[in-house]
Amino acid sequence: MENDTIITDTIDDSEDIHDSGKHDTADTKTALRTINLSVKFFDKLAIKNINIRVKKNNVAAIIGPSGCGKSTFLRSINLMHDLTPGAKVYGDIYVHNEHITDNNVVDLRKKVGMVFQKPNPFPTMSIYDNVAAGLKLNGIRNKSLFDETVEKNLTYTGLWDEVKDRLKSPAISLSGGQQQRLCIARTIAVKPEIILMDEPTSALDPVSTSKIEELIINFKKHYTIIIVTHNMQQAGRISDYTAFFYLGKLVEYSRTRRLFTNPREKLTEEYVTGKFG
C-alpha cells in the first residue's frame, strides 16, 4: 500500500462532522461511524481506510464510478460480507455508538435494514406475507400485529391503495416499482434505525424512482439513510451529505450542496462535472 492518507471529513463548512478518528461514546448525534474501514476480497483490497460519520436523521449519499467500492462499503455496515467467500473486513464500525460486532449479527441487522438494487420480494410469498416476513421469520405469532404492520407500512410506502384488494396475491405479480416499494415496506416493518439502500432505483422507471425518492425524503424524520447511487442528480435531490468514492478510497465527504457546487478536491470536481466516470 502506498500512501494511505485519505481525506477524511475535515470539512470547514459543516460544523459538526469533523472526525477526530477517536470514538466518543457520549456522542448521541451520530448514527454511524466507520474508522479505518477496509475490506479485502481474497488479496484484493476493495475499500481502503474509510472514515465516515453519518448524523442521525440524515441522508448520506455515496457516489462514484462502477467498482469504486460503494456497495462494498454499504454491505460492510450490516455485516453482509460474512457470507461472501474470501471477504475480510478490517477497522471499526459503530452504529449508535455500539461496535457492530459487540452484539449478535441478527440484532444488528434488525437495527440496520437494507434495500437492494433489484427488487427482491420473496417469490413464494404473498404481498401480505412479504411485509410481515421480518416479524414472522423472527418467530412472532400475532395476527393482529401482522395486520397492523402490513397496513401501516404499505400505507407509508404508498402501496396500500394499490394493493389492498389483493394482499394475498403473489408479490412477484407486482410491477418492478411496486415490488421495490414492497421491499422498502418489508424493511421498515422490522423497525430499523438505519436503512442502507444499494442503488434502489437503478432498475426502475422515472415515475417509480421519484416515488421512492419522495419516500426517502420523508423517511428522514424516523430513520438515518445511507444510499448508494449512480445518479448524481438523485444524490443532489435527496441527500444531506455526499461521499465520493474513487478506486476504493473516500475522496471527499461534504455537505451535498458543497460537494456539487464547490468541491474541495479536483477529482470530485471532474467527476461531478462529468469529465470521467
Partner: peptide, 29 residues
C-alpha cells in the same frame, strides 16, 4: 434460488438456518 433472496432475508435480521429453511428451501421446494 437467487442469492438476493437469501440476502433479503438475512438483512431482515433472520438467522442463517431460518433463511435456509424458510426462504431458500421453500423457494426451491
Amino acid at each position: 434460488v437467487p442469492q438476493s433472496i437469501r440476502e433479503a432475508s438475512l438483512a431482515l435480521g433472520v438467522s442463517r438456518w431460518k433463511t435456509v429453511l424458510r426462504i431458500a428451501l421453500t423457494t426451491a421446494s
